[in-house]
């Protein structure tokens, strides 16, 4: 059904984003840690906020797979669905490990 699957591990980004991407991914790993803590405490608001924010930033950068995971996380947190949130966080972790970035040539 609507189960979280980390899809779109490979992304093609404009070359000019290259310098920004490492910090971006690092911060998403930090977010994942925060989200796990929030889940442990049943802090649904924080989970929803992380999902919401990441949805916005990930789409702007072009990390479509992460964007989708973040959106599901926001919804799952809204529904206080522990299992689904956990699945989203697992998918989030996998995504960060497996994402492959292909930079488009600078002058296109």
């Amino acid at each position: 059904m609507n189960g979280p699957r980390a899809e779109g591990f490979s992304v093609r980004l404009p070359a000019k984003l290259r310098p920004l991407v490492p910090a971006f991914l690092e911060n998403r790993a930090k977010d994942l840690g925060l989200a796990q803590d929030a889940l442990a405490q049943g802090d649904w608001d924080t989970l929803a906020a992380i999902g919401h924010r990441t949805f916005g930033t990930a789409s702007s950068y072009g990390f479509v797979g992460l964007r989708d995971i973040a959106r599901r996380l926001e919804h799952a947190a809204g529904a206080q669905d522990r299992a689904l949130v956990q699945a989203c966080l697992t998918a989030w972790g996998e995504y960060l490990q497996q994402v492959e970035i292909d930079y488009a040539s600078p002058d296109r």
């Binding site: 984003l17 920004l20 910090a23 971006f24 911060n27 924010r53 916005g56 930033t57 702007s60 950068y61």
Partner: peptide, 9 residues
Amino acid sequence: DDPDYLALV
């Protein structure tokens, strides 16, 4: 307050 968004924009 989101540094990644700030950097991108």
